[in-house]
Design a protein around this nucleic acid. Sequence first.
DNA 1: TTTTGTGAACTAGTTCACAGCT
DNA 2: AGCTGTGAACTAGTTCACAAAA
Lengths: 222, 222
Amino acid sequence: MNSQNKRKTASEPVSELTTNRLSVYLRCLNQLEAASVETISSQALAEQFHLNAAQIRKDLAYFGEFGVRGVGYYVKDLKRHLRQILGLDRKLRVAVMGAGNLGLALADYPGFRREGFEIVAMFDIADAKIGDRSKSGVPIHDLKELKKVVRRDRFDIAVIAVPAESAQRVLEQVVAAGIKAVLNFSPGAIKVPAGVKMKSVDLTVSLESLSFYLAQGIDDGH
Amino acid sequence: MNSQNKRKTASEPVSELTTNRLSVYLRCLNQLEAASVETISSQALAEQFHLNAAQIRKDLAYFGEFGVRGVGYYVKDLKRHLRQILGLDRKLRVAVMGAGNLGLALADYPGFRREGFEIVAMFDIADAKIGDRSKSGVPIHDLKELKKVVRRDRFDIAVIAVPAESAQRVLEQVVAAGIKAVLNFSPGAIKVPAGVKMKSVDLTVSLESLSFYLAQGIDDGH
DNA sequence: TTTTGTGAACTAGTTCACAGCT
DNA sequence: AGCTGTGAACTAGTTCACAAAA
Protein backbone atom coordinates (compact mmCIF):
# COMPACT_ATOMS: atom_id res chain seq x y z
CA MET A 1 0.00 0.00 0.00
CA ASN A 2 2.84 2.32 -0.85
CA SER A 3 2.80 5.62 -2.76
CA GLN A 4 3.01 4.77 -6.50
CA ASN A 5 -0.33 5.36 -8.27
CA LYS A 6 -2.84 3.14 -6.68
CA ARG A 7 -6.20 4.42 -8.05
CA LYS A 8 -8.38 2.47 -5.63
CA THR A 9 -10.85 0.78 -7.94
CA ALA A 10 -10.10 -0.41 -11.43
CA SER A 11 -12.20 2.34 -12.94
CA GLU A 12 -14.83 4.30 -11.13
CA PRO A 13 -15.22 7.45 -13.15
CA VAL A 14 -13.11 10.49 -12.33
CA SER A 15 -15.08 13.70 -12.61
CA GLU A 16 -14.05 16.27 -15.17
CA LEU A 17 -13.96 18.83 -12.39
CA THR A 18 -11.33 16.73 -10.67
CA THR A 19 -9.10 16.40 -13.72
CA ASN A 20 -9.34 20.13 -14.32
CA ARG A 21 -8.19 20.72 -10.77
CA LEU A 22 -5.27 18.30 -11.12
CA SER A 23 -4.07 20.47 -13.96
CA VAL A 24 -4.43 23.55 -11.80
CA TYR A 25 -2.47 21.91 -8.98
CA LEU A 26 0.29 21.04 -11.40
CA ARG A 27 0.57 24.65 -12.43
CA CYS A 28 0.74 25.74 -8.81
CA LEU A 29 3.50 23.26 -8.17
CA ASN A 30 5.45 24.58 -11.15
CA GLN A 31 5.36 28.02 -9.59
CA LEU A 32 6.38 26.67 -6.21
CA GLU A 33 9.24 24.74 -7.71
CA ALA A 34 10.40 27.85 -9.55
CA ALA A 35 10.37 29.58 -6.17
CA SER A 36 12.49 26.74 -4.71
CA VAL A 37 9.81 25.55 -2.33
CA GLU A 38 10.50 21.92 -1.44
CA THR A 39 7.43 20.83 0.50
CA ILE A 40 3.93 22.25 0.79
CA SER A 41 0.93 21.38 2.92
CA SER A 42 -2.56 21.25 1.45
CA GLN A 43 -3.37 24.11 3.79
CA ALA A 44 -0.60 26.34 2.46
CA LEU A 45 -1.32 25.39 -1.14
CA ALA A 46 -4.97 26.27 -0.65
CA GLU A 47 -4.24 29.64 0.92
CA GLN A 48 -1.68 30.62 -1.65
CA PHE A 49 -3.84 29.83 -4.69
CA HIS A 50 -7.35 30.32 -3.32
CA LEU A 51 -8.30 26.65 -3.25
CA ASN A 52 -9.81 24.35 -0.62
CA ALA A 53 -7.41 22.22 1.42
CA ALA A 54 -9.75 19.28 1.94
CA GLN A 55 -10.50 19.16 -1.74
CA ILE A 56 -6.85 19.14 -2.67
CA ARG A 57 -6.25 16.23 -0.32
CA LYS A 58 -9.24 14.32 -1.59
CA ASP A 59 -8.36 14.84 -5.24
CA LEU A 60 -4.80 13.67 -4.68
CA ALA A 61 -5.64 10.82 -2.34
CA TYR A 62 -7.85 9.34 -5.02
CA PHE A 63 -4.76 8.51 -7.07
CA GLY A 64 -2.38 7.48 -4.34
CA GLU A 65 -0.84 8.40 -1.04
CA PHE A 66 1.44 11.14 -2.17
CA GLY A 67 1.62 13.11 1.05
CA VAL A 68 3.60 12.66 4.24
CA ARG A 69 1.73 13.21 7.49
CA GLY A 70 3.14 15.98 9.59
CA VAL A 71 5.02 17.34 6.57
CA GLY A 72 2.82 17.81 3.52
CA TYR A 73 3.71 17.01 -0.08
CA TYR A 74 7.15 17.05 -1.64
CA VAL A 75 6.75 19.50 -4.50
CA LYS A 76 9.01 17.67 -6.93
CA ASP A 77 7.48 14.28 -6.20
CA LEU A 78 3.93 15.44 -6.42
CA LYS A 79 4.68 17.25 -9.65
CA ARG A 80 6.07 14.06 -11.13
CA HIS A 81 3.02 12.08 -10.01
CA LEU A 82 0.60 14.61 -11.41
CA ARG A 83 2.40 14.73 -14.73
CA GLN A 84 2.19 10.99 -14.89
CA ILE A 85 -1.50 10.88 -13.95
CA LEU A 86 -2.32 13.55 -16.53
CA GLY A 87 -0.37 11.66 -19.16
CA LEU A 88 2.11 14.49 -19.59
CA ASP A 89 5.17 12.26 -19.21
CA ARG A 90 5.04 11.64 -22.93
CA LYS A 91 4.91 14.64 -25.28
CA LEU A 92 1.42 15.03 -26.75
CA ARG A 93 0.97 16.06 -30.34
CA VAL A 94 -1.84 18.37 -31.40
CA ALA A 95 -3.35 19.45 -34.71
CA VAL A 96 -5.54 22.48 -35.31
CA MET A 97 -8.47 22.19 -37.70
CA GLY A 98 -9.17 25.51 -39.40
CA ALA A 99 -6.51 28.10 -40.26
CA GLY A 100 -8.64 31.18 -39.67
CA ASN A 101 -7.74 33.90 -37.18
CA LEU A 102 -8.55 31.78 -34.19
CA GLY A 103 -6.91 28.61 -35.51
CA LEU A 104 -3.69 30.44 -36.33
CA ALA A 105 -3.65 32.11 -32.92
CA LEU A 106 -4.14 28.76 -31.19
CA ALA A 107 -1.44 27.09 -33.27
CA ASP A 108 1.05 29.68 -32.08
CA TYR A 109 -0.24 29.94 -28.51
CA PRO A 110 2.89 29.76 -26.37
CA GLY A 111 1.05 28.25 -23.38
CA PHE A 112 0.64 24.94 -25.17
CA ARG A 113 4.30 24.41 -25.95
CA ARG A 114 5.29 25.58 -22.50
CA GLU A 115 3.23 22.80 -20.95
CA GLY A 116 4.73 20.18 -23.22
CA PHE A 117 2.23 20.00 -26.05
CA GLU A 118 3.46 20.15 -29.59
CA ILE A 119 1.38 21.64 -32.40
CA VAL A 120 2.35 19.59 -35.41
CA ALA A 121 -0.16 20.48 -38.12
CA MET A 122 -3.06 22.61 -39.25
CA PHE A 123 -5.79 21.80 -41.75
CA ASP A 124 -7.97 23.97 -43.94
CA ILE A 125 -9.94 23.76 -47.17
CA ALA A 126 -8.98 27.13 -48.67
CA ASP A 127 -6.42 26.67 -51.47
CA ALA A 128 -4.96 30.06 -50.63
CA LYS A 129 -3.92 28.81 -47.20
CA ILE A 130 -2.84 25.25 -47.96
CA GLY A 131 0.94 24.90 -48.11
CA ASP A 132 1.39 28.03 -46.02
CA ARG A 133 2.61 28.06 -42.43
CA SER A 134 1.62 29.80 -39.19
CA LYS A 135 4.01 32.48 -37.89
CA SER A 136 5.74 29.93 -35.70
CA GLY A 137 6.02 27.50 -38.61
CA VAL A 138 3.14 25.03 -38.24
CA PRO A 139 2.33 23.75 -41.76
CA ILE A 140 -1.21 24.08 -43.14
CA HIS A 141 -2.42 20.96 -44.93
CA ASP A 142 -5.39 20.27 -47.15
CA LEU A 143 -8.17 18.79 -45.04
CA LYS A 144 -8.37 16.02 -47.65
CA GLU A 145 -4.93 14.88 -46.53
CA LEU A 146 -6.08 14.41 -42.95
CA LYS A 147 -5.83 10.63 -42.85
CA LYS A 148 -2.47 10.60 -44.57
CA VAL A 149 -1.02 13.22 -42.21
CA VAL A 150 -2.40 11.47 -39.13
CA ARG A 151 -0.69 8.28 -40.22
CA ARG A 152 2.58 10.07 -40.85
CA ASP A 153 2.65 12.64 -38.03
CA ARG A 154 0.71 10.66 -35.42
CA PHE A 155 -1.05 13.36 -33.47
CA ASP A 156 -3.28 12.65 -30.49
CA ILE A 157 -5.55 15.68 -30.05
CA ALA A 158 -7.48 17.78 -32.55
CA VAL A 159 -8.47 21.38 -31.88
CA ILE A 160 -11.54 22.43 -33.86
CA ALA A 161 -11.51 26.09 -34.87
CA VAL A 162 -13.71 26.05 -37.97
CA PRO A 163 -16.99 27.90 -38.56
CA ALA A 164 -20.00 26.47 -36.72
CA GLU A 165 -21.61 25.09 -39.86
CA SER A 166 -18.65 22.83 -40.69
CA ALA A 167 -17.86 21.76 -37.14
CA GLN A 168 -19.93 18.56 -37.12
CA ARG A 169 -18.49 17.41 -40.43
CA VAL A 170 -14.91 18.15 -39.38
CA LEU A 171 -15.43 16.33 -36.09
CA GLU A 172 -16.61 13.28 -37.96
CA GLN A 173 -13.59 13.35 -40.25
CA VAL A 174 -11.26 13.72 -37.31
CA VAL A 175 -12.88 10.81 -35.51
CA ALA A 176 -12.80 8.71 -38.69
CA ALA A 177 -9.06 9.37 -38.82
CA GLY A 178 -8.72 7.78 -35.38
CA ILE A 179 -8.46 10.80 -33.12
CA LYS A 180 -9.95 10.20 -29.67
CA ALA A 181 -9.66 13.61 -27.99
CA VAL A 182 -10.97 16.92 -29.26
CA LEU A 183 -10.92 20.49 -28.01
CA ASN A 184 -13.77 22.32 -29.72
CA PHE A 185 -14.08 26.08 -30.13
CA SER A 186 -17.01 26.15 -32.47
CA PRO A 187 -20.37 27.04 -30.98
CA GLY A 188 -23.51 24.96 -31.23
CA ALA A 189 -24.58 21.41 -30.56
CA ILE A 190 -22.22 18.73 -31.81
CA LYS A 191 -22.85 15.02 -31.53
CA VAL A 192 -19.83 13.10 -30.32
CA PRO A 193 -19.50 9.35 -30.86
CA ALA A 194 -18.89 7.12 -27.86
CA GLY A 195 -15.25 6.53 -27.07
CA VAL A 196 -14.29 10.06 -28.06
CA LYS A 197 -13.71 12.82 -25.53
CA MET A 198 -14.59 16.35 -26.50
CA LYS A 199 -14.18 19.49 -24.43
CA SER A 200 -15.88 22.60 -25.71
CA VAL A 201 -14.99 26.22 -25.16
CA ASP A 202 -17.93 28.36 -26.15
CA LEU A 203 -16.97 32.00 -26.32
CA THR A 204 -20.46 33.25 -27.01
CA VAL A 205 -21.91 31.42 -24.04
CA SER A 206 -19.18 32.87 -21.83
CA LEU A 207 -19.84 36.42 -22.96
CA GLU A 208 -23.61 36.06 -22.71
CA SER A 209 -23.26 34.74 -19.20
CA LEU A 210 -21.31 37.88 -18.31
CA SER A 211 -24.01 39.92 -19.97
CA PHE A 212 -26.54 38.26 -17.69
CA TYR A 213 -24.50 39.23 -14.68
CA LEU A 214 -24.37 42.84 -15.79
CA ALA A 215 -28.07 42.91 -16.59
CA GLN A 216 -28.95 41.54 -13.15
CA GLY A 217 -26.41 43.54 -11.18
CA ILE A 218 -27.59 46.87 -12.49
CA ASP A 219 -31.15 45.52 -12.31
CA ASP A 220 -32.52 47.90 -14.92
CA GLY A 221 -32.12 51.48 -16.09
CA HIS A 222 -28.89 53.54 -16.20
CA MET B 1 -49.15 35.82 -12.20
CA ASN B 2 -48.87 36.35 -15.93
CA SER B 3 -45.92 35.67 -18.22
CA GLN B 4 -43.59 38.74 -18.09
CA ASN B 5 -40.43 38.04 -16.07
CA LYS B 6 -41.42 37.15 -12.61
CA ARG B 7 -38.19 35.86 -11.02
CA LYS B 8 -39.82 34.40 -7.90
CA THR B 9 -37.64 35.86 -5.18
CA ALA B 10 -35.95 39.24 -5.27
CA SER B 11 -32.56 37.60 -5.63
CA GLU B 12 -31.79 34.03 -4.79
CA PRO B 13 -28.66 33.30 -6.75
CA VAL B 14 -28.88 31.90 -10.27
CA SER B 15 -26.26 29.27 -10.91
CA GLU B 16 -23.65 29.88 -13.56
CA LEU B 17 -24.61 26.55 -15.10
CA THR B 18 -28.13 27.87 -15.56
CA THR B 19 -27.07 31.10 -17.25
CA ASN B 20 -24.80 29.15 -19.56
CA ARG B 21 -27.74 27.00 -20.54
CA LEU B 22 -29.96 30.01 -21.16
CA SER B 23 -27.42 31.12 -23.70
CA VAL B 24 -27.47 27.69 -25.30
CA TYR B 25 -31.26 27.71 -25.47
CA LEU B 26 -31.16 31.08 -27.16
CA ARG B 27 -28.87 29.72 -29.83
CA CYS B 28 -31.17 26.75 -30.39
CA LEU B 29 -34.10 29.10 -30.78
CA ASN B 30 -32.20 31.15 -33.33
CA GLN B 31 -31.75 28.03 -35.40
CA LEU B 32 -35.38 27.06 -35.02
CA GLU B 33 -36.52 30.53 -36.01
CA ALA B 34 -34.27 30.41 -39.07
CA ALA B 35 -36.00 27.13 -39.94
CA SER B 36 -39.39 28.85 -39.55
CA VAL B 37 -40.42 26.76 -36.55
CA GLU B 38 -43.11 28.67 -34.62
CA THR B 39 -43.58 26.64 -31.47
CA ILE B 40 -41.48 24.00 -29.75
CA SER B 41 -42.03 21.77 -26.73
CA SER B 42 -39.32 21.21 -24.16
CA GLN B 43 -39.39 17.58 -25.26
CA ALA B 44 -38.70 18.39 -28.91
CA LEU B 45 -36.08 20.98 -28.02
CA ALA B 46 -34.31 18.46 -25.83
CA GLU B 47 -34.29 15.77 -28.47
CA GLN B 48 -33.13 18.04 -31.24
CA PHE B 49 -30.20 19.50 -29.33
CA HIS B 50 -29.32 16.71 -26.91
CA LEU B 51 -30.60 18.41 -23.79
CA ASN B 52 -32.88 17.37 -20.93
CA ALA B 53 -36.53 18.41 -21.16
CA ALA B 54 -37.16 18.75 -17.43
CA GLN B 55 -34.10 20.90 -17.08
CA ILE B 56 -35.16 23.22 -19.88
CA ARG B 57 -38.55 23.67 -18.23
CA LYS B 58 -37.03 24.29 -14.83
CA ASP B 59 -34.49 26.78 -16.12
CA LEU B 60 -37.13 28.75 -17.98
CA ALA B 61 -39.81 28.52 -15.29
CA TYR B 62 -37.42 30.16 -12.88
CA PHE B 63 -37.74 33.41 -14.81
CA GLY B 64 -41.41 33.32 -15.73
CA GLU B 65 -44.21 31.29 -17.20
CA PHE B 66 -43.16 31.44 -20.81
CA GLY B 67 -44.79 28.23 -22.00
CA VAL B 68 -48.33 27.30 -22.94
CA ARG B 69 -49.58 23.96 -21.63
CA GLY B 70 -50.51 21.55 -24.33
CA VAL B 71 -48.57 23.61 -26.89
CA GLY B 72 -45.02 24.35 -25.78
CA TYR B 73 -43.12 27.61 -26.21
CA TYR B 74 -43.58 30.20 -28.93
CA VAL B 75 -40.13 30.42 -30.46
CA LYS B 76 -40.21 34.16 -31.13
CA ASP B 77 -41.59 35.00 -27.69
CA LEU B 78 -39.19 32.82 -25.82
CA LYS B 79 -36.31 34.21 -27.81
CA ARG B 80 -37.34 37.72 -26.86
CA HIS B 81 -37.62 36.78 -23.21
CA LEU B 82 -34.23 35.08 -23.17
CA ARG B 83 -32.56 38.02 -24.85
CA GLN B 84 -34.07 40.27 -22.23
CA ILE B 85 -33.04 38.02 -19.33
CA LEU B 86 -29.49 37.75 -20.67
CA GLY B 87 -29.32 41.51 -21.10
CA LEU B 88 -28.88 41.23 -24.85
CA ASP B 89 -31.65 43.69 -25.66
CA ARG B 90 -29.08 46.46 -25.45
CA LYS B 91 -25.89 46.17 -27.49
CA LEU B 92 -22.94 45.31 -25.25
CA ARG B 93 -19.54 46.84 -25.89
CA VAL B 94 -16.36 44.85 -25.38
CA ALA B 95 -12.67 45.68 -25.22
CA VAL B 96 -9.77 43.26 -25.61
CA MET B 97 -6.70 43.66 -23.42
CA GLY B 98 -3.59 42.46 -25.21
CA ALA B 99 -3.02 42.68 -28.96
CA GLY B 100 -1.07 39.46 -29.36
CA ASN B 101 -2.12 36.61 -31.63
CA LEU B 102 -4.96 35.56 -29.37
CA GLY B 103 -6.18 39.08 -28.64
CA LEU B 104 -6.26 39.98 -32.32
CA ALA B 105 -8.10 36.77 -33.18
CA LEU B 106 -10.68 37.41 -30.47
CA ALA B 107 -11.16 41.03 -31.56
CA ASP B 108 -12.07 39.83 -35.05
CA TYR B 109 -14.01 36.73 -33.95
CA PRO B 110 -17.20 36.88 -36.02
CA GLY B 111 -19.25 34.98 -33.42
CA PHE B 112 -19.22 37.95 -31.06
CA ARG B 113 -20.65 40.46 -33.54
CA ARG B 114 -23.17 37.95 -34.75
CA GLU B 115 -24.62 37.67 -31.25
CA GLY B 116 -24.82 41.42 -30.84
CA PHE B 117 -21.57 42.22 -29.07
CA GLU B 118 -19.43 45.02 -30.37
CA ILE B 119 -15.65 45.01 -30.01
CA VAL B 120 -14.79 48.65 -29.63
CA ALA B 121 -11.15 48.76 -28.56
CA MET B 122 -7.95 46.88 -27.88
CA PHE B 123 -5.14 47.77 -25.51
CA ASP B 124 -1.45 46.91 -25.46
CA ILE B 125 1.81 48.27 -24.09
CA ALA B 126 4.01 47.68 -27.15
CA ASP B 127 4.69 50.95 -28.98
CA ALA B 128 4.90 49.03 -32.24
CA LYS B 129 1.26 48.00 -31.94
CA ILE B 130 -0.32 51.13 -30.47
CA GLY B 131 -2.15 53.18 -33.10
CA ASP B 132 -2.52 50.14 -35.32
CA ARG B 133 -5.80 48.31 -35.97
CA SER B 134 -6.96 44.69 -36.12
CA LYS B 135 -7.86 43.31 -39.55
CA SER B 136 -11.49 44.20 -39.00
CA GLY B 137 -10.55 47.68 -37.85
CA VAL B 138 -10.56 47.60 -34.04
CA PRO B 139 -8.13 50.31 -32.86
CA ILE B 140 -5.26 49.41 -30.54
CA HIS B 141 -4.75 51.92 -27.74
CA ASP B 142 -1.99 52.43 -25.23
CA LEU B 143 -2.92 50.67 -22.01
CA LYS B 144 -2.12 53.95 -20.24
CA GLU B 145 -5.13 55.47 -21.99
CA LEU B 146 -7.49 52.88 -20.52
CA LYS B 147 -9.40 55.18 -18.21
CA LYS B 148 -9.74 57.87 -20.85
CA VAL B 149 -11.01 55.40 -23.47
CA VAL B 150 -13.45 53.80 -21.04
CA ARG B 151 -14.90 57.22 -20.31
CA ARG B 152 -15.19 58.05 -23.98
CA ASP B 153 -16.15 54.69 -25.52
CA ARG B 154 -18.06 53.28 -22.55
CA PHE B 155 -17.46 49.57 -22.86
CA ASP B 156 -18.95 47.03 -20.48
CA ILE B 157 -16.82 43.89 -20.72
CA ALA B 158 -13.05 43.38 -20.86
CA VAL B 159 -11.45 40.32 -22.41
CA ILE B 160 -8.02 39.60 -20.97
CA ALA B 161 -5.59 38.07 -23.45
CA VAL B 162 -2.26 39.12 -22.03
CA PRO B 163 0.60 36.90 -20.83
CA ALA B 164 0.02 35.17 -17.49
CA GLU B 165 2.51 37.33 -15.63
CA SER B 166 0.71 40.59 -16.45
CA ALA B 167 -2.84 39.27 -16.04
CA GLN B 168 -3.32 40.22 -12.39
CA ARG B 169 -2.08 43.74 -12.97
CA VAL B 170 -4.23 44.24 -16.07
CA LEU B 171 -7.27 42.93 -14.23
CA GLU B 172 -6.70 45.47 -11.48
CA GLN B 173 -6.39 48.31 -13.97
CA VAL B 174 -9.55 47.21 -15.73
CA VAL B 175 -11.44 47.05 -12.46
CA ALA B 176 -10.06 50.43 -11.40
CA ALA B 177 -11.45 51.83 -14.65
CA GLY B 178 -14.90 50.68 -13.57
CA ILE B 179 -15.36 47.50 -15.60
CA LYS B 180 -17.49 44.92 -13.78
CA ALA B 181 -17.35 41.90 -16.13
CA VAL B 182 -14.25 40.14 -17.41
CA LEU B 183 -13.59 37.21 -19.70
CA ASN B 184 -10.12 35.93 -18.90
CA PHE B 185 -7.94 33.79 -21.16
CA SER B 186 -4.75 33.95 -19.19
CA PRO B 187 -3.85 30.91 -17.13
CA GLY B 188 -3.11 30.90 -13.45
CA ALA B 189 -4.73 32.11 -10.25
CA ILE B 190 -6.15 35.60 -10.36
CA LYS B 191 -7.74 37.38 -7.43
CA VAL B 192 -10.97 39.10 -8.35
CA PRO B 193 -12.42 41.86 -6.18
CA ALA B 194 -16.00 41.52 -4.92
CA GLY B 195 -18.59 43.01 -7.21
CA VAL B 196 -16.70 41.97 -10.33
CA LYS B 197 -17.62 38.91 -12.38
CA MET B 198 -14.86 37.02 -14.12
CA LYS B 199 -15.17 33.97 -16.32
CA SER B 200 -11.98 32.16 -17.19
CA VAL B 201 -11.15 30.04 -20.19
CA ASP B 202 -8.03 28.05 -19.47
CA LEU B 203 -6.70 26.42 -22.59
CA THR B 204 -3.93 24.52 -20.84
CA VAL B 205 -6.30 23.01 -18.32
CA SER B 206 -8.61 21.93 -21.14
CA LEU B 207 -5.82 20.25 -23.06
CA GLU B 208 -4.38 18.57 -19.97
CA SER B 209 -7.78 17.22 -19.10
CA LEU B 210 -7.94 15.64 -22.56
CA SER B 211 -4.48 14.27 -22.01
CA PHE B 212 -5.72 12.61 -18.83
CA TYR B 213 -8.53 10.99 -20.77
CA LEU B 214 -6.10 9.60 -23.32
CA ALA B 215 -3.72 8.40 -20.65
CA GLN B 216 -6.50 6.55 -18.85
CA GLY B 217 -8.26 5.21 -21.91
CA ILE B 218 -5.17 3.49 -23.22
CA ASP B 219 -4.39 2.43 -19.64
CA ASP B 220 -0.70 2.02 -20.28
CA GLY B 221 1.61 0.55 -22.90
CA HIS B 222 1.19 0.63 -26.68
C1' DT C 1 -54.81 15.05 -25.06
C1' DT C 2 -50.67 17.44 -24.72
C1' DT C 3 -47.34 19.81 -22.32
C1' DT C 4 -46.10 22.94 -18.80
C1' DG C 5 -44.45 24.06 -14.05
C1' DT C 6 -42.87 22.07 -9.86
C1' DG C 7 -42.38 19.37 -5.39
C1' DA C 8 -40.03 15.27 -4.30
C1' DA C 9 -36.37 11.94 -5.11
C1' DC C 10 -32.09 11.31 -6.55
C1' DT C 11 -27.14 12.08 -7.87
C1' DA C 12 -22.94 14.57 -7.80
C1' DG C 13 -19.74 17.52 -5.64
C1' DT C 14 -17.82 19.96 -1.63
C1' DT C 15 -16.52 20.71 3.00
C1' DC C 16 -16.13 19.27 7.72
C1' DA C 17 -13.99 17.05 11.33
C1' DC C 18 -11.21 13.70 13.14
C1' DA C 19 -8.66 9.14 13.56
C1' DG C 20 -4.22 7.79 12.67
C1' DC C 21 0.48 8.23 10.85
C1' DT C 22 5.20 10.55 11.15
C1' DA D 1 2.65 18.79 17.18
C1' DG D 2 1.43 18.74 12.45
C1' DC D 3 -0.72 17.18 8.53
C1' DT D 4 -2.70 13.55 5.61
C1' DG D 5 -6.41 10.53 4.18
C1' DT D 6 -11.20 9.71 4.61
C1' DG D 7 -16.05 8.70 6.38
C1' DA D 8 -19.85 11.52 7.41
C1' DA D 9 -22.53 15.71 6.80
C1' DC D 10 -23.77 18.96 3.89
C1' DT D 11 -24.78 21.64 -0.41
C1' DA D 12 -25.72 21.99 -5.21
C1' DG D 13 -27.51 20.27 -9.36
C1' DT D 14 -30.34 17.05 -12.07
C1' DT D 15 -34.10 14.13 -13.19
C1' DC D 16 -38.51 12.07 -12.15
C1' DA D 17 -43.24 12.01 -12.02
C1' DC D 18 -47.52 14.12 -11.76
C1' DA D 19 -51.17 17.67 -10.77
C1' DA D 20 -53.05 21.42 -13.16
C1' DA D 21 -53.78 24.24 -17.31
C1' DA D 22 -55.00 24.90 -22.17
